[in-house]
Design a protein around this nucleic acid. Structure first.
Lengths: 121, 121
DNA sequence: CAGCATCCGGGATGATACTG
DNA sequence: CAGTATCATCCCGGATGCTG
């Protein structure tokens, strides 16, 4: 194991397991049911609102809006609005967001590769 | 980016974003609010029930039991009961669980290192 | 000590209708 | 097209009490 929990404890000041610590808050955002899927979709490139609705199957408009606003406030997602008619809005990852997805994609890939085995058990 | 979403699509048979697909189910288990923290604690080594309750601050008995049962059913956590009085039970990661945490720890470490910046924004 | 059964309140989530 | 507003619902998760 190249990364140990000890290292994490040092990095986060030993607060990971404490309620309300920043790490828990961010984890809740990016590891939430819809957060992962939206970030995953955006890791392919920028998407329009409607594209996200279709790609992230089952998400409601309300949850898509809420998820995007949270991730945007976290500085992981950037929203670009074009003053056209009809309106066009693009969502993409920031540098920080890409940095995050570099770490998350290997995890998701592993899960995708083992999910069948795990669920069938 | 060493891992692309395209690779993931191939691995999982292009079903990542579909409702009810195994990948989504497993993601919900391991990326859940308490799932991450319990797995994180166990990545340090085996823990007893009471140790987990104390280490994962704020978790209720109900959620701890529920989380552990789910992760055990997924084959990520192993439960060992010793026939003693008073009872002693140890929880630890399986090989599969350790494999998973090898991928998750770098992500958590990154979050721990950036959480302060992100939340303060 | 290590849990399970039960109840129940509230925030998370969905569905629908509407607007710039 | 890209959302917002509103209302209904659901189930997550906490509290409590009990058992082997």
């Amino acid at each position: 194991m190249t990364v140990s929990l000890e290292q994490i404890r040092e990095t986060s000041g030993d607060e990971i397991f404490l309620e309300g610590c920043p790490t828990r808050v961010v984890l809740d955002h990016i590891m939430s049911k819809w957060g992962v899927l939206v970030l995953l979709a955006l890791s392919e490139g920028t998407h329009r609102w409607g594209e996200l609705r279709r790609e992230v199957e089952g998400i409601s408009e309300k949850m898509l809006a809420s998820t995007l606003r949270t991730l945007e406030a976290d500085g992981l997602v950037v929203r670009t609005s074009y003053p056209e008619v009809p309106p066009r809005v693009e969502y993409g990852l920031t540098d920080l967001g890409r940095d995050l997805m570099d770490r998350m994609l290997p995890l998701v890939e592993w899960v995708a590769g083992h999910a069948g085995t795990i669920v069938g058990r």
